[in-house]
Amino acid sequence: MSYNWNWGVLLQDPYLGWLISGVGWTLAVSAAAWVIAFALGSIVGVARTLPNRFVRGAATAFVELFRNIPLLVQLFLWYFVVPELLPEDWGRWVKRDLPLPEYTTAVVGLGFYTASRVAEQVRSGIESIPRGQTLAGYASGLTTGQLYRYILLPVGYRLIIPPLTSEFLTIFKNSSLALTIGVLELTAQSRQITEYTFQGFEAFTAATVIYVVITLSVTAAMGLVERRARMPGFIAGGR
């Protein structure tokens, strides 16, 4: 195997700039998509635990639809298909005037896809709370809304901090799919550097190290959050 090492390439203009801008886009896509995924996923997840059959059915349909189509296909649907199916005026607006079309599409697509996964975590968090807690809440006169607000959601979210962390990391990694519709995020930039310089080892190593470092940092930070949100003496499923 013959290969000309040149780690210096990573610090050369413009390649260093490309890497930095790539990290910026990766974080921008991940953060915005997470806002959608968390908000929408929470609503859908709660809806799946409500007594009303139609609400539950609609929420289940949402989850099944978004989780059984590959993310890549969903991105293409949002990017190429949805603008064509919208009413004509809207479609024209989306195609001509939508600000940062690739970025926006990536955020929406990734957000909806991950929302279906977050919804499943929220649902399982709520369902893992012993039924007696619900009865105790109702017995003291709480309404269903109050029951969710003061008991089921605060306990449920605490129980699912670890899986939610891994969903966030999934969004972070999946943000690389944005390159398929033209967002120049970290993975795209590392490949672009490879194509310009033929220094694939260096470029991919740089990207890999950045991904690993950010993942480890997020994991460590969430570990702290988890300790702070701990319910003293409470062992999940302990009784």
Binding site: G132, Q133, L135, A136, G141, V155, M231, G233, F234
Partner: peptide, 17 residues
């Protein structure tokens, strides 16, 4: 109505958080 009737459960059901 429930607010006016107290109830105590077998497993206590205190809110852990």
């Amino acid at each position: 109505l429930r607010a006016r009737i107290g109830m105590v459960f077998q497993n206590f059901e205190l809110y852990p958080h």
